[in-house]
Design a binder for these strands. Structure first.
Lengths: 119, 119
DNA sequence: CGTCCATATTGACACACATCAAAGCGATTC
DNA sequence: GAATCGCTTTGATGTGTGTCAATATGGACG
């Protein structure tokens, strides 16, 4: 049911231990570019709802059809899912007719540490 | 002078616990609107650098002059600081000739909990 | 008062982006 | 193969936003 064989990286390029907490030292330009992309991806209400629906779905993944009733057209849903994927927040896999999205495992804790430091 | 548009988006824990972790349950439309505003504020590289510089500055606050060499013009810096303030992430205070910005205390942990749950 | 300094606001402009209808594509079923 | 379903891509459009130059504001100091 839940297949955890995939352990992809975050974003289109490989990501090292990302960044220290925002309170530790000023971000460099490159760090800020990379990090801003993730925050911006969650900076749209529709994307945030889609992300939250996937993250809280039973099994940790959701078919597009499970989450697409958020008040915008289906192409728009697809557009937002693509953006979340490009930001490295989601991964997707086609299984038969359906496409399943799941939250990239490392993302939540990485962004969390950026905000609050060591857990 | 009290500018209502600069009041924090996140409420105090007792008053209004903002939102549960994104993984707990799907966000409502209102919750997503409110929360997306904060993420969007950090979704620009320049703003993220400014925020990080303030957050990591000695004393927990910084004068605009301390942080404004981020590669854009002075009006643009001012514009970004205003946006961060409107999102509830920063507060500002004028002292003599200078204006000091500091991170709104509750913000980091609130956004952190949104991502990683209870600490 | 006048000048200088630090920051904010205004106005203009180019570009990014959210959105939808329509068309395309992959997989299943008949 | 044809029809259908689930989803993505394309193209068009209106709105949002990052940026700067110019200007305004507000305090400090002669």
């Amino acid at each position: 049911m839940v297949d955890l064989k995939t352990q992809p990286v975050v974003g289109d390029e490989a990501v090292q231990p990302c960044c220290p907490p925002l309170t530790e030292r000023p971000l460099s330009r490159e760090e800020s570019e990379r990090t801003a992309k993730m925050f911006r991806a969650l900076g749209d209400p529709v994307r945030l709802r889609l992300f939250s629906r996937i993250a809280s779905f039973a099994g940790g993944e959701a078919c597009v059809c499970d989450i697409s009733d958020v008040g915008v057209s289906q192409p728009t849903v697809s557009h937002h899912l693509k953006k979340l994927k490009e930001a490295g927040l989601l991964t997707s896999e086609r299984r038969g007719t359906w496409v399943y999205y799941r939250v990239e495992p490392s993302v939540l804790s990485t962004m969390g540490q950026l905000l609050v430091g060591q857990r």
